[in-house]
Amino acid sequence: MLLTTKQLFLKCYGRYAVPAVNVFFMEEIHGLFAAAQEADAPFIVQTTPFARDYAHAEMLLSMIGAAARIYPRVVYAVHMDHGYEEHIFDAIDKGGYTSVMIDASHDDFETNVARTRAVVAAAHAKGISVEAELGVLAGVEDDLTVDAAHSFYTNPRQVEDFVNATDCDSLAIAVGTSHGAYKFSGGQGLQFHILEEIRRRLPGFPLVLHGGSNVAPEVIERINAAGGRLKTDAKGVQEDEVRKAIPLGICKINIATDTRLLWTMVNREFFRDRPDEFAPTTPGKIFMEEYKKVYVKKVRIVWLLR
C-alpha cells in the first residue's frame, strides 16, 4: 500500500521510527521490499538527485512500482531526498512520489522559509508530504559535501517559527549525526538535550534523523580484510541512541551508508574468494539475501516495531 509520509508518521509517532532507505539499483530495491514484507513493517524508499542522475528517475520509479507488485503486502512511501527545486518540482509534476524533501538548510533562516513554503504549496496541492530541514549536517552523501566547520546544530528556538511559517509536514534536524561512512570520529553521539528541547517546543510533530546508519565496525573490518582501505574510526548511530530518540519525536531515520557498506563487503569478499567468477548475478543474489537479513534484524531490534 502506497502512503504519504504524513500518513505513516501519524501512526508511528512516539512508538517506532520508520526506516527511510536510499536506493540506486535493482538489488537494493528487491532486498528492501522483500525484507519489509517479511518483517511486516512500513518503510520509506528514497531516491536522491544523484540516484536519479545515475539510473534515471523513470527507471527508479519503474523498479519501485514493479517491486510493489512483486511484494504486495508492503506498506511504504516514495520520497525524494535532499532535493533542490529543479528536482522537486519535476518529481511533483511527473508523479510517482508521495513525499519530497526541500534541502534549504544551508541558506539563512528567511530564505529557507521562503524556499520551503514554495515547495509546500506545490506539493500539498497534489497531496504530497514535505520534509524540510533546519541545521546542517557534516559529512559526504552522493555529491554533497559539508565539512565540520560549516555544520551546525538545529537551534530549538527557531523550530516553532519555521514550522508555522512553512506548514511543512516533518522536520529534519541536526543533533549530532553526519552523512557518509566517516561519522562521529570525535565520538560525540546524539545531542539529546537539543532533541528534548525541540520536542518540547514541537510536541507531536514528526522529526527526522538524517545520517542514521550504524556503520558496524565488523563490516568495516571485513571490507578492509578483503582489500578495502576504509577508515576504522567511524562511529554511526548506536542502537540505544535510536531507542532513546524515538519517544522524543524521531519518526524517520535515514539509512544509506549501511547499505553501501554491505554491498561493498559482499562484493569484495565474493571476488576475493571466487577470483574465477565474473557474473554479476551471483554476488547480486548474495547481496539481496544479506540485505534482507540485516534489515529485518534492524527492524525488529532497533526500530521497535516488534
Score class of each variant (00 low, 15 high):
Ile70Phe: 04
Lys293His: 09
Ile301Val: 15
Asp90Ala: 15
Ala121Asp: 14
Arg157Asp: 14
Leu134Arg: 14
Gly135His: 13
Gly180Glu: 02
Ile250Trp: 05
Leu134Val: 11
Arg200Phe: 03
Thr116Ser: 15
Glu141Gln: 14
Asp240Val: 13
Cys168Lys: 00
His210Lys: 08
Lys298Asn: 07
Arg229Phe: 02
His179Lys: 06
Ala114Ile: 11
Lys292Phe: 00
Ala216Arg: 15
Glu85Asp: 13
Ser105Trp: 03
Gly189Gln: 10
Ile128Thr: 13
Ala148Glu: 14
Phe192Ile: 08
Val45Trp: 08
Val175Gln: 06
Lys6Ala: 14
Ile173Ser: 04
Arg300Ser: 03
Ile194Lys: 08
Lys293Asn: 10
Pro203Thr: 04
Pro72Trp: 01
Phe9Met: 04
Pro280Ile: 03
Asp161Glu: 15
Ala68His: 10
Gly189Arg: 14
Thr145Gly: 05
Asn214Asp: 03
Gly95Cys: 11
Phe89Gln: 14
Ala123Asp: 08
Pro247Thr: 01
Val100Ala: 03
Asp147Gln: 10
Ile128Ala: 02
His82Thr: 06
Ser178His: 00
Asp103Thr: 09
Ala172Thr: 02
Asp258Arg: 07
Met63His: 09
Asn155Lys: 15
Gly189Asn: 14
Ile250Lys: 06
Lys292Met: 07
Arg300Asn: 10
Arg73Thr: 07
His150Ile: 02
Arg222Gln: 09
Asp142Tyr: 12
Ile64Met: 09
Gln158Asp: 15
Gly249Phe: 02
Asn112Ala: 08
Asp93Cys: 10
Asp93Ile: 13
Phe152Ile: 10
Glu269Trp: 02
Asp93Gly: 05
Thr166Ser: 03
His87Pro: 00
Phe271Cys: 05
Met1His: 13
Ala122Val: 12
Ala66Arg: 12
Ala55Arg: 14
Arg229Thr: 06
Val219Trp: 11
Glu133Phe: 08
Asn112Arg: 09
Gln238Gly: 10
Ser99Phe: 11
Ser170Pro: 00
Val219Tyr: 06
Tyr97His: 13
Arg268Phe: 05
His30Glu: 14
Arg115Met: 12
Ala77Thr: 10
Ile253Gln: 13
Asp167Cys: 04
Phe109Gly: 04
Val296Thr: 05
Arg115Tyr: 06
Leu190Glu: 07
Ala17Thr: 09
Asn155Phe: 05
His82Asn: 07
Tyr153Trp: 12
Leu207Asn: 01
Gln188Arg: 15
Val294Met: 13
Val159Trp: 11
Leu171Ile: 14
Ser129Val: 01
Gln46Cys: 15
Tyr13Pro: 00
Ala121Pro: 02
Gly211Glu: 08
Asp161Pro: 07
Gly65Arg: 12
Ala55Glu: 07
Val299Pro: 02
Arg117Asn: 05
Arg274Lys: 13
Ala68Glu: 09
Cys251Ile: 01
Val130Lys: 03
Arg117Met: 01
Cys251Lys: 01
Arg268Pro: 00
Gln191Leu: 07
Phe9His: 06
Phe50Asn: 11
Asn112Glu: 05
Val113Pro: 07
Ala51Ile: 06
Glu218Lys: 15
Thr47Asp: 05
Asp169Gln: 01
